[in-house]
């Protein structure tokens, strides 16, 4: 490493912005698709686990095991099936990590619905479907979204590990910087990944405010 090499060379950023931008787009796709897929799968699985309690413990145990597997190892094991440097190789494991966080969140969220609320809904003549959509799910929103925040932020930071198998979005900047012993791409990568995570986190918080107007009304009352 040459002495006096600054941590950030601003002109590098200016010259390379187009390629950084395409890495950024790739990164966002690989980070967000697993979370969206995870949420779509976790909702029915979570509902099933609440309805049939026996299902819950095995599901959680399996998810715990999945969650403990190092991402790089899972990427590698998938390569023969999905190919080197393919988006799917990164997206599939990240979907499972998202599920591991989201299924318990959905179950806990639905478990947080107070009994008297559920009974009131029944007494008012709500059928099971209407009760689920209009009472249970809205009340579960804060807990589910808390899980979604964790899943989203870790998904965004995990994508970069994919750079080691040739498909890691902004993670490529780390490989590039290391190979050329050059700080700037590494710093740019860390800053962008972290900023992306903070931004996504903020968007979910905003969504939560919009989806649960009663929480704000109660606080200001």
């Amino acid at each position: 490493m040459g002495d006096g090499e600054p941590l950030v060379r601003w002109d590098w950023i200016g010259r390379n912005w187009p390629s950084v931008e395409s890495l950024l787009v790739d990164h966002v796709i690989m980070a967000i698709v697993p979370v969206v897929l995870g949420l779509i799968i976790a909702l029915p699985l979570g509902l099933a686990s609440v309805r049939w309690r026996l299902l819950y413990q095995p599901t959680v145990s399996v998810m715990n095991v999945v969650y403990s597997l190092p991402s790089l190892a899972v990427f590698i094991v998938l390569i023969p099936l999905t190919g080197l440097a393919e988006r799917a190789t990164v997206i599939i494991p990240l979907t499972f990590y998202a599920l591991a966080v989201l299924i318990p969140a959905v179950v806990d969220g639905l478990g947080a619905v107070p009994d008297h609320v559920r009974q009131s809904a029944v007494a008012m003549g709500f059928g099971p479907m209407r009760r689920l959509l209009q009472v249970d799910l809205p009340i579960a929103v804060p807990v589910v979204l808390a899980g979604l925040r964790v899943a989203t932020v870790s998904s965004i930071s995990l994508v970069s590990v994919g750079a080691l198998i040739g498909r890691g979005g902004l993670g490529y900047l780390f490989i590039d910087g290391w190979q050329r012993q050059f700080y700037t791409p590494i710093v740019v990568g860390i800053v962008l990944v972290t900023a992306l995570a903070v931004l996504a986190d903020g968007l979910i918080i905003l969504a939560q405010r919009l989806l649960t107007p009663w929480a704000r009304a109660r606080r200001s009352a």
């Binding site: 490493m1 964790v150 932020v153 870790s154 965004i156 930071s157 970069s160 590990v161 750079a163 080691l164 890691g168 902004l170 993670g171 900047l173 780390f174 490989i175 910087g177 290391w178 012993q181 700080y183 590494i186 710093v187 990568g189 860390i190 990944v193 972290t194 995570a197 903070v198 986190d201």
Partner: peptide, 21 residues
């Protein structure tokens, strides 16, 4: 807690090792 989840592992590893030697 927030930093732990948001910081990309690979980036941190590469940067620290490059800085320290």
């Amino acid at each position: 807690a927030n930093a732990a989840r948001a910081l990309p592992t690979l980036g941190l590893v590469v940067l620290i090792v490059l800085l320290v030697g």
